[in-house]
Structure formats: structure tokens, C-alpha cells
């Protein structure tokens, strides 16, 4: 047997110490992935989504006017962001959505509080509530456009109508979640109505109120966009409409992704607010 010379790459092989360092780093990484699994899923799922998208185009051979490449959508996004075009429309839609949301917050929570406190009033109001709830919003949206014109107001009203009922119901259920023992306890302290409200009813209803706010914020965007679809010259809904009129699918996709991102930001801010206000409460109770 001929003794072979040491391979030239011998020095390039990692030392034992390095191997153990790499191993411990690897174990740490695995632990991190295991403990924070949900966060690692997000980028992973985005990559998977884009890959699937490209795969469909490759295998089916769709032309751009049917389904654009992700890159085309990205380029379109970069263009509308660079010339500031998108921000105008985002601001417009956000304004409509937030007006609708604030109006709903004001009316749905105050009406919800009254109906939550009085079963008699709730019984009296419930036929109207159910009737109003059964009206398809797409059916009356054109009417609202006819009545209130093309500006911000009709879209804010549509957003308001879409989120009013979920927020109302959440408020009612929230106020009802105060149990009789808790009321008796406050009664034994001779607490005033205001004290019962501020110390008991409001914090007890808070989880459901916040859930309503979270849903409301996200859906108010949807309401505003539905309104823009039906009339007007501004907003993200208008952009989608414009893209479809011009067969500019990248513009449609760019608008849709913007809508998704804005909605996620709204939902996320509400979730952060929720986390802060419900600090210390048991998670599964929320």
C-alpha cells in the first residue's frame, strides 16, 4: 500500500472545537425555530405563495392580462410608490374607513351599552336590528352613492353600515358578561352607577369590545373599498377598478396587496392595543 499524502484541503476541514460550536449554534437555532415556530412560518409561507404563483404561470402559460408575474406586480408597486401615486389613494381610502369606524365605535358601543343593560329595549329593538342586518350591503350601496354623491361621505357610511352590527353585538354580549355576583359585590359597596360602569362593566366588556374593534377596523377598509368600486375617482377600490378597465393586471394586484398590507397594519395595531389593555388577563379567557 502506498501511503497517500495528506489531502491539500485537510487544513480547511473544521477543527473539533469549531464543530462543537457549530453544533451548539445549530441546536440553538432549532430551539429558536421550535419556540418561535409561528414567526418562522410567516416568511416561509410567503416564499411558498410566490413559488406557487410562479409555478402556475409556468405550467399553465397564462399571459400577463390573465395572471401577471410576481415581478411585474413588484415593479408596478415600486412605480406607484416612487411617484407617490399610491399614497394619495391610500390616504383617501383610510380616511373613509376611519370615519366609518369612528362613527360605528361611537354609535354601536353606546347603543350596545343601552341594549345590553335593558332586555326590554333589546326585545323592542331586535326586529329592526335583524331586519337591518338582513339587507345586503351591496344592495343599498348604490342608493347611498346616489343620495350622498361621489365624495368621502357615502363610502364612510358604507363602511359604518358594514361594521355597525358586529360591533353592536359584541358590545351587548360584553356588557352581558358581567355576572350577578360582581354586581352584588359593587352593590354591597354602595357603588354609584358611574363606578359600576367604570370599574366593572367597562373592564369586563373590554375583551369583547376590543375584538369588535379589531374586526371593525379591518372590515371598515372593506366597506370603503366597496363604496369606491361603485363610484368615485380616488381610493384603492377605484385603483382596482381602473386596473380592470385597462386590463392592467399588475395594477390590480398591486392595489390588492396594498389593501392587504394596510388592513394588516390596522388589525395589528388593534391587536397591540388589545395586548396592552388586556395585560395580565388569562389568554384563553379573552
Amino acid at each position: 500500500m502506498v501511503s497517500r499524502p495528506a489531502p491539500p484541503y485537510k487544513n480547511l476541514l473544521p477543527s473539533k472545537a469549531a464543530v462543537s460550536t457549530i453544533r451548539s449554534l445549530w441546536i440553538r437555532l432549532i430551539k429558536l425555530v421550535k419556540n418561535r415556530f409561528e414567526y418562522f412560518l410567516i416568511p416561509f409561507s410567503i416564499i411558498l405563495f410566490i413559488a406557487g404563483w410562479k409555478l402556475i404561470i409556468r405550467t399553465q402559460g397564462f399571459p400577463e392580462y390573465i395572471l401577471p408575474e410576481p415581478e411585474a406586480v413588484w415593479d408596478q408597486l415600486v412605480v406607484v410608490i416612487e411617484n407617490g401615486y399610491i399614497f394619495e389613494h391610500v390616504t383617501y381610502t383610510l380616511t373613509e374607513a376611519l370615519y366609518g369606524f369612528l362613527a360605528s365605535l361611537l354609535f354601536a358601543t353606546s347603543l350596545g351599552y343601552i341594549l345590553g343593560k335593558s332586555r326590554a329595549l333589546e326585545k323592542a329593538a331586535s326586529p329592526y336590528i335583524v331586519a337591518a342586518k338582513s339587507i345586503p350591503i351591496l344592495g343599498i350601496a348604490p342608493l347611498i352613492i346616489i343620495w350622498f354623491g361621489q365624495g368621502i361621505t357615502p363610502k364612510a357610511i358604507i363602511a359604518f353600515l358594514i361594521i355597525f352590527f358586529p360591533m353592536l353585538v359584541n358590545t351587548i354580549v360584553g356588557i352581558r358578561s358581567v355576572n350577578e355576583d360582581q354586581r352584588e359585590l359593587m352593590r354591597s359597596y354602595s357603588a354609584s352607577k358611574w363606578q359600576v360602569f367604570i370599574r366593572l362593566e367597562l373592564p369586563a366588556a373590554m375583551p369583547l369590545l376590543l375584538a369588535g374593534i379589531k374586526i371593525g377596523l379591518a372590515r371598515s377598509m372593506m366597506g370603503a373599498i366597496v363604496g369606491e368600486y361603485l363610484g368615485g375617482q380616488q381610493g384603492l377600490g377605484f385603483l382596482v377598478n381602473l386596473g380592470s378597465g385597462l386590463s392592467e393586471t399588475p395594477l390590480i394586484f398591486a392595489s390588492i396587496f396594498t389593501i392587504i398590507i394596510i388592513t394588516l397594519i390596522l388589525y395589528g395595531s388593534a391587536a397591540i392595543l388589545e395586548g396592552a389593555l388586556l395585560k395580565g388577563r388569562r389568554r384563553d379567557a379573552v
Binding site: 355576572n179 355576583d181 360582581q182 359593587m186 354591597s188 359597596y189 366593572l200
Partner: peptide
Amino acid sequence: IVFQAPVLFEWRNVRRNIELPLQVM
């Protein structure tokens, strides 16, 4: 008054629960 259920306010910690009557009164 002490009921069969503790009737604590779940959004308050122990100290803040005991403070409740002082706050109300």
C-alpha cells in the same frame, strides 16, 4: 361580603382586587 365564588375581577391583580372597595368608597 364573601360569596361562594371568589368573585374577583380577573383584570386586576391581587393587590388591585383588594383595593377595589377602598377605591369605590
